[in-house]
Amino acid sequence: MTKQRISRYTSMMWNQTNRTSRIMALLLCFFVFAANMSAQEANDSLALINDSLAIKDAEADSLRQVEKEAEYEIGGKIKPSKYIPTEEDMKQTFFQGFTVSTDLLNMGLYFFSSYGNIDASLRLNLLNTYFPVVELGVGKCDKTDFNTKIRFKTDAPFLKLGAPYLKVGVDYNLLKNKWQTNKLLIGLRYGITNYKCSIEGPDQTDPIWKTTGPLEVNSVSATSHYAEVVFGCQVKIWSFIHMGWTARYKMEIHTTKNLYSHPYYIPGYGTTVNGSYWGATYNICFDLNWGKKKPSVKQVVENAIEDIKQNPNEKK
């Protein structure tokens, strides 16, 4: 009965001429509706609200179920707010190409400082997550102290550029979304180098026996082993060109002992003023996909046919 009254009042008032009167009519209808609502009708409306809440609960349950299924597929615990790999991500090939890079910071030191190194590194990209690295370079040192006039030189057994060194290790991409172009890396390196040290300086004078002799040590061979903990990032600049920096905590593991000196400089490691120290690199990287496994034409066609079968109405 109430609904019939409301519709009658509404139609009557809606036929008024101006907008203000229509709004007034709507308000009047609302008050009439409120005033005429009986207790039973109120119960009816409560039942309707409860029904709508139940529908929402069912939707939430189904959403939870979907999340649980996603957890089961990935094998890890995830939260809806965090990154969830897409199906396309999961299908990526294991080998994603490789990166060739060089360190600009130490290259600058090599040319404009008393010591430094030039290096080139080759980094394989496995699933955009693991990056086995090989770094090959040469390091040199020719340092003369201002006060003592002692000159320390690092030579190579057979190279004029400097003493060679080799580092091997692996980096791990810390980002949750592994498939973006930028990378946040943490890794380890093991380095080995063989080099020769030379020391020159002013003559030494024995204060007691009053004798004088030259300070000259030539080509003492040494081999050093060291380790590095690497933390850094790499961002895309343009196309396949990336740039990034790394901070490296370096630890000297072992150096061949000799009576003349502990080497002042170890190629690839740096100066040995302390047993361990922090170093840094600023890298330019060329992210190359050469060697990345691509799907064959047959496989692409098969995938397309399968997609069409699964979603026949979808327009692509």
Partner: peptide, 17 residues
């Protein structure tokens, strides 16, 4: 006798065997 240098800034010493 051996001339010994730890660091260039520390000067030279004479070690013996």
């Amino acid at each position: 006798n051996f001339s010994h240098v730890d660091l260039p800034e520390c000067g030279s010493f004479s070690y013996h065997y």
